[in-house]
Design a protein around this nucleic acid. Structure first.
Lengths: 338, 338
DNA sequence: GTGAAAGCGCTAACAG
DNA sequence: CTGTTAGCGCTTTCAC
């Protein structure tokens, strides 16, 4: 593990010059730079990030706080963020909030404060007021993805619009008995988004002059089994059978498709189904959906941070644009029959 | 952001004493320790991990290298490791190898070498010889999970035994036409495990005196759609229709169940299906399986590392025990009909 | 049990 | 353009 002075010696220059040559800060003649680079390569020299951080106050490391790793959306955002950070020469340290309350506390009480990160990305987090203030107290650039974080710049698709679009697709196919599977109250409190999606659904219905029927709403937990159970309730109602279902996530929509099959119903013959996400499995199940791009959202979050961390070298444009989403029509939606 | 000297001042002691009191290294009288702790709390003092690392040479940070984030197994291991590291006061920095070859290279060429981690956990990695030597050149404690890593202590279930157990379960139910869906050749080269699982399958068949029929093997890519396609091939063969399928992963097994349904076959009436993993969705699909516990594997990997990093304070026992796995019988397997 | 002081390996003025 | 030097904030001998 060679240090900077060994490189300096080999190259026949001072350590300061080595530092300058390797970091690009400060002018170095082309020839010395070349010498230094060679020497460093020969020795296999790599800066000690600790020493460097201590001297500069910057760590080239950013913290990502995530509610859980086992969800398609979160891990996709994480994947996008990781890859983009890597490209920018940053490390990513991961804080997972799943697990006991104690673990969660210790993230906020100890870990984030260790001065180990230059900035933090918070994925779909709904924090307690205390946690939020801890986060803000870090006084570091922070950006949220997918969750509303008071006081923090947040990246999120327009859930109301996305839900409206999905619902309109169903309505345009002639459906009027359009059911909605959305978040449970618990879930709503934690993530807000289900409420927004429900609002978009209701807006689309009302705009089409179709009264919103509370019996056509079923809460679920955003999982496939949850969607399955909710759909069975909907389909089993002898009085009102929906001809279309808008589920607030693809996993629930897939559960809905499976429930329909199990009840002997044909999708889309007897019932149309649409979700939100464009989950990995959506294509396999022929699921129509509104795609969002969590990977891209993770990348964008990193861009945003980089702008704040390196204000000089970046142009600012393009970040404030709304996040993209697209209606993707597959085999699970069709014109109302009869 | 108070520093150690401010704490020292408030407590009326030297910085050396603060360091000792807070780290537990070196003797400090109970009363001074108390004073220091109070002062630190009052100021909200947290050590600068960089300064501390620079001085001690230890970072309290460990690197985790993972092939991809979107897989149940990997992210479960990661989750277990993260939570266990947190409990041990360690940070986790994440290196994802998915993405372009360049990104992958840069992980090995630059990031891991930054002296930022005390140890590394490699999840299911099959590395090139060059990458392996880079890794070993770090000369840091390293443990692998789930993949064979030459020269590295690795945690892995006994794939041969697990596969044999699954197959025996089918055989014991009277099945003789037992098909196997395993890894493609590409996949095999990368992960080895499919081969081992296939070996276990064949061993069980032979032990029961049932000749292994190559027509009853189908390769797939460990995904649900892949399992679906493979199963269709198996079930569509007009000459030999298996009465049971052993899939090398739960996702492929679920694909198999869906394929059977789509072909009008009843599970387990017409065909029994078993997988390996105990995936999140296994219960929902009533899938019989051999559970492995990736979360636990992640935790164990951390234990192993902690032993190496803090040899004094740990007892060594229990780590060399084979990793646990359990046959879990649900609704997808039954006695052969007729 | 406690303090003084010498670094850990690098960077950033400041001179030249 | 390059070298000298003073830290960054902590830990750890070494005395006392």
């Amino acid at each position: 593990m060679p240090g900077i002075n060994e490189v300096a010696e080999l190259a026949g220059v001072s350590t300061a010059t080595v530092s300058r040559a390797l970091s690009g800060n400060g002018a170095v003649s082309a020839t010395t730079k070349d010498k230094v680079v060679r020497a460093a390569a020969e020795l296999g020299y790599v800066v000690s990030s600790n020493a460097s951080s201590l001297a500069t106050g910057r760590t080239r490391n950013i913290g990502v706080v995530i509610p859980s790793l086992n969800h398609w959306f979160y891990s996709s955002v994480l994947q996008g963020a990781e890859s983009s950070l890597l490209a920018n020469g940053y490390d990513l340290t991961l804080y997972n909030l799943a697990g006991t309350g104690e673990e969660r506390d210790s993230v906020f009480e100890h870990f984030l404060l260790r001065k180990r990160v230059d900035a933090v990305i918070a994925i779909s987090l709904e924090l307690t007021p205390q946690e939020t203030s801890r986060l803000l107290a870090l006084n570091k650039p922070t950006v949220g993805v997918g969750g509303p974080l008071p006081g923090v710049r947040t990246l999120s698709i327009d859930d109301v619009e996305v839900a409206r679009l999905a619902t309109e697709h169903l309505i345009a196919l002639g459906h009027t008995m359009v059911a909605h599977i959305g978040g449970t109250e618990d879930f709503e409190r934690d993530f807000h988004l289900p409420t927004n999606r429900r609002i978009g659904y209701e807006a689309a219905m009302e705009a089409a002059g179709i009264p919103v029927d509370p019996d056509l709403f079923q809460p679920a937990d955003f999982t496939l089994p949850g969607g399955y159970r909710a759909a069975k309730q909907l389909f089993g109602n002898p009085r009102k059978r929906p001809s279309a279902v808008f589920a607030a996530s693809d996993e629930m929509a897939i559960g809905t498709i499976l429930a329909a099959r199990d009840m002997g119903m044909n999708v889309p013959g007897d019932v149309s189904v649409i979700g939100i996400d464009d989950h990995d499995l959506a294509e396999f199940f022929g699921l129509s959906t509104v795609a969002q791009y969590p990977d891209l959202q993770g990348r964008l979050a990193v861009e945003l941070l980089m702008e704040q961390l390196h204000p000089e070298s970046r142009e600012v444009g393009g970040i404030n644009t709304a996040l993209p989403y697209d209606l993707i029509v597959r085999a699970s939606t069709a014109r109302r029959r009869g």
